[in-house]
Design a protein around this nucleic acid. Structure first.
Length: 241
DNA sequence: AGGGCTACCTGTACGC
DNA sequence: TGCGTACAGGTAGCCC
């Protein structure tokens, strides 16, 4: 049992069929099959796919797709991840994907889109965290993006100036591209198909740096940690206004 | 309707 | 060493 029960009919659907394409949308992965079905996956906090040529059982393995000469294994310690089954034609209108925002690295995430969303009466951090506003940004990158933008995370999104929207767009694309280049951010559990860790942790400017000196201003004011919507936010009082 | 809070689950770090 | 508590890359569903 993950967040949802793995559909009992999934074995019947997968067996003797072929994965034709794998798509990522926000934090979701979609396996398309030759029989017009689609497997939708989310990794939650601690989910991970590993690929093995000789399966050895590990604690928290939940689901194995056996290919000709290898296995794709879904492992998830906290069970916040899930695997669901859809008809391929329905996949983008399913409840998880229907209202999801634009991809942050796409051209659709632009100034006019943010202007359109200007009525949102939430903090800018909360805006970025909401997958309906923009897809795929999580707690680490939101802190990093706002530090890079020089914007105070509790500032109201609807009060931002045009200049600040531009900064957010630029920083989002910059931080994500850098993080991707470094293979993501490994704090603890995250890794790439079970072997490589992500080295963006070494590049984090504020996340997980509570009470440490700010790399930018180097003032004797330490990085602050606050809670917004139940999630930790890190920022520099001096550099983010 | 939109936004905030909480539960879901397991592991780990820390204080006593 | 052991126990209790707080917290951790996310989301959905409830409540206001």
């Amino acid at each position: 049992m993950l967040r949802y029960e793995i559909p009992p009919q999934i074995c019947k659907t997968l067996i003797n069929n072929r994965i034709t394409k794998i798509i990522r949308r926000g934090k979701y992965l979609i396996f398309l099959l030759n029989n017009q079905s689609a497997v939708l996956c989310h990794l939650g906090m601690t989910g991970c796919f590993r690929i093995s040529r000789d399966y050895v059982k590990r604690k928290h393995d939940h689901f194995i797709m056996g290919l000709k000469n290898k296995q794709i294994i879904f492992n998830d310690i906290r069970k916040f991840g899930f695997i669901k089954l859809y008809k391929a034609s329905d996949i983008f209108s399913c409840s998880h994907l229907r209202k999801i925002g634009p991809e942050p690295l796409s051209e659709n995430f632009n100034i006019s889109y943010l202007k359109e969303k200007k009525l949102r009466k939430v903090s800018v951090k909360s805006f970025l965290m909401n997958q309906y506003n923009v897809a795929g940004l999580g707690n680490i990158y939101c802190s990093e993006i706002l530090f890079d933008s020089g914007i105070f995370p509790e500032k109201n999104f609807s009060n931002l100036r045009l200049e600040e929207y531009k900064k957010i767009l630029k920083s989002t694309k910059k931080i994500l591209n850098q993080a991707i280049k470094k293979g993501g951010t490994t704090i603890k559990d995250y890794n790439i198909s079970d072997e490589k860790v992500g080295y963006f942790k070494n590049k984090l400017k504020v996340y997980d740096r509570y009470d440490m000196t700010c790399f930018r201003c180097k003032k004797n004011i330490k990085i602050k940690k606050i809670f917004q919507n139940g999630r930790s936010t890190f920022y520099c009082v001096k550099c983010q206004k």
